[in-house]
């Protein structure tokens, strides 16, 4: 392995890691706050990318990528809230909400996926890159677009972390996640908070979708593979802390980049899952988890 190959793999891994971190954090936000797993998260990624394409692409409205991304993020926030009210809220009080939400979010994912197919067609599309050209530093070469994606991801994750730590709404969100009943007795509107958490998660998915769409291609099924990776990341990192999935995302991203080089694209998911099983056996609460949280 030459130095060039190594840096290529490392940079590829970092880009993947940043994207996975964005997706996994969105997933973990819903998981920790509502205690359910949102299988529609992958479709949120696709829908976010397509909304951005519709606004941004010269073939459609031609508003430019920044406007497209903004519309997509805001739009997905409200679509996420709508999905919560339609698919999760009705079953909120039933004892088997976890199982029911698996069914309803899977149903939602399928419906949204088909709607995307009908609206935009199944063929691959691409968002035009924000920045063109390459960036050179310390003898490394990275496309400006990918560097922007990494920076955008990290900035957004930092902003979310500060929001959860400092803002009253973010603190209330953590409170509801830790003890719903005590939060209710404190006069916190749990239903609205759940809706906001779902909306935020969908907005994060939209950002991830825009970034993926501008780095790679987009099609209606573009979210299913990232969803699976995000699931690995969330289990890998544990959700006890906000930063757990983020570290894990970069580890998984780098691992995946190395695996793709070492064993090929075909076998790398297998190896990843094998590693995940080992982690689950050795440290069931996740690599960075402190205590277990069962769903």
């Amino acid at each position: 392995m030459t130095f060039d190959t190594l840096t290529l793999i490392l940079l590829g891994g970092v880009v993947l890691g940043a994207l996975y971190a964005l997706m996994a954090t969105g997933l973990a936000l819903v998981w920790t706050t509502l205690g359910i797993f949102n299988f529609a998260h992958g479709t949120f990624i696709a829908l976010g990318a397509y909304i951005a394409w519709q606004v941004a692409s010269p073939e459609a409205l031609g508003g430019g990528l920044l406007v497209g991304a903004l519309v997509s993020v805001v739009g997905m926030f409200f679509i996420g809230m709508a999905v919560y009210y339609l698919l999760i809220k009705p079953f909120e009080r039933s004892a088997d909400i976890v199982v029911k939400s698996v069914i309803t979010t899977l149903a939602g994912a399928t419906i949204l996926e088909n709607l995307i197919s009908i609206a935009w067609g199944p063929r691959n599309k691409q968002l035009s890159a924000v920045l063109t050209g390459d960036l050179q530093f310390f003898g490394l070469v990275m496309s400006r677009n990918e560097a922007a994606a990494v920076i955008v991801s990290l900035v957004i994750l930092a902003a979310l972390g500060i929001f959860l730590q400092r803002a009253p709404l973010g603190r209330a969100m953590r409170a509801v996640a830790q003890n719903r009943e005590a939060a209710q007795l404190m006069g916190i509107d749990v239903v609205r908070l759940y809706a906001v958490a779902f909306g935020l998660s969908a907005a994060l998915a939209a950002i991830a979708g825009v970034l993926i769409g501008s780095i790679r291609f987009m099609n209606p099924l573009m979210g299913s593979d990232p969803l699976m990776k995000a699931l690995i990341v969330v289990i890998f990192g544990g959700i006890a802390r906000f930063t757990g999935p983020i570290y894990a995302a970069f580890i998984v991203g780098l691992l995946e980049a190395f695996m793709t080089y070492a064993v090929g694209l075909y076998w790398s998911p297998t190896v990843l899952f094998a590693i995940m099983i080992v982690v689950l056996v050795v440290k069931p609460e996740g690599l960075f988890g402190k205590h277990r949280k069962s769903v």
């Binding site: 603190r171 409170a175 830790q178 003890n179 404190m186």
Partner: peptide, 14 residues
């Protein structure tokens, strides 16, 4: 039990 992973100050702030 309040909120196990929040500090007293954070709890009082909400």
């Amino acid at each position: 039990l309040l909120f196990p992973d929040m500090t007293v100050a954070e709890t009082l702030s909400i």
